[in-house]
Amino acid sequence: MSLLERLNSDMKQAMKEKNKDKLNVIRMVKASLQNEVISLGNNVTLSADQELTILTREVKQRKDSLLEFEKAGRDDLVDKLKQELLILEEYLPQQLSEDELLEIVRATISEVGATSKADMGKVMSAVMPKVKGQADGSSVNKAVASLLK
């Protein structure tokens, strides 16, 4: 089942349950998917990889906003965003544990022959496609930085 099919199914369920929070999040994600289709040309069907990219972008936007709202002391908006993130994470693939991520980073460091922090960009660009949707950039960055001295 594609992401769009799953969103449509869950949207119907949210309507039946009168779950407005989930319904709003699903509608926002569907709008983002539709905007991407429009920007690529209306007769295009998004691949699973493209759908995942859009979903990841939505999660990242909310995490960034969450940090800003926490700094500003806007607890009302923080709670709302945390709820939205929980809903969005239902559609993401299983997230890698810290140990799994470190193992992938170690293997990639060996593959690209990285030896110092100067090679961090090379390692990051090799790791990110491998963990797409399973780990965010900041956690990958921390893992790479911890292994490169």
Rank of each mutant, 00 (worst) to 15 (best):
M1V: 13
R6C: 06
N8W: 00
D10H: 02
M11D: 06
M11G: 01
M11T: 13
A14P: 06
A14W: 03
M15W: 00
K16T: 15
K16R: 14
K16C: 02
K18Y: 05
N19Q: 11
N19F: 00
N19Y: 02
N19W: 00
K20P: 04
D21Q: 07
K22R: 13
K22F: 03
K22D: 13
N24I: 13
N24Q: 14
R27E: 15
M28K: 12
V29Q: 03
S32R: 01
N35S: 12
N35C: 08
I38R: 14
S39N: 14
L40I: 09
L40R: 09
N43A: 13
V44G: 05
V44L: 04
V44F: 05
L46P: 11
L46H: 05
S47F: 04
S47H: 06
A48S: 15
D49E: 15
D49L: 09
Q50H: 10
E51M: 01
E51H: 02
T53W: 01
L55C: 04
T56F: 08
T56D: 08
R57W: 07
R57P: 00
R57I: 06
E58A: 03
V59L: 05
R62G: 02
L66M: 11
L66K: 03
F69G: 03
F69C: 05
A72V: 01
G73Y: 11
G73Q: 11
V78I: 10
D79E: 12
D79A: 12
K80D: 06
K80A: 04
K80G: 00
L81K: 11
L81Y: 10
Q83V: 09
Q83F: 08
L85F: 05
L86F: 09
L86V: 14
L86Q: 15
I87E: 02
I87G: 04
I87F: 04
L88T: 10
E89I: 11
L92V: 11
Q94E: 12
Q95L: 04
Q95K: 15
Q95M: 09
S97V: 04
D99P: 02
E100C: 01
E100V: 00
L101P: 05
E103D: 12
I104A: 10
I104S: 09
I104P: 08
V105P: 00
V105H: 05
R106S: 02
T108W: 05
I109Y: 01
S110R: 06
S110E: 14
S110A: 02
T115Y: 01
T115N: 10
T115I: 06
S116V: 04
S116E: 13
S116P: 07
K117A: 11
A118N: 09
M120I: 10
G121P: 07
K122P: 06
V123N: 00
M124Y: 09
M124R: 03
M124L: 15
S125L: 00
S125T: 08
S125G: 07
A126E: 11
A126Q: 12
M128L: 15
P129F: 05
K130E: 03
K132Y: 09
Q134G: 02
Q134V: 00
A135T: 00
A135F: 07
D136V: 11
G137M: 11
S139M: 11
V140L: 09
K142I: 00
K142M: 08
K142H: 07
V144F: 00
V144Y: 00
V144A: 03
S146V: 01
K149T: 07
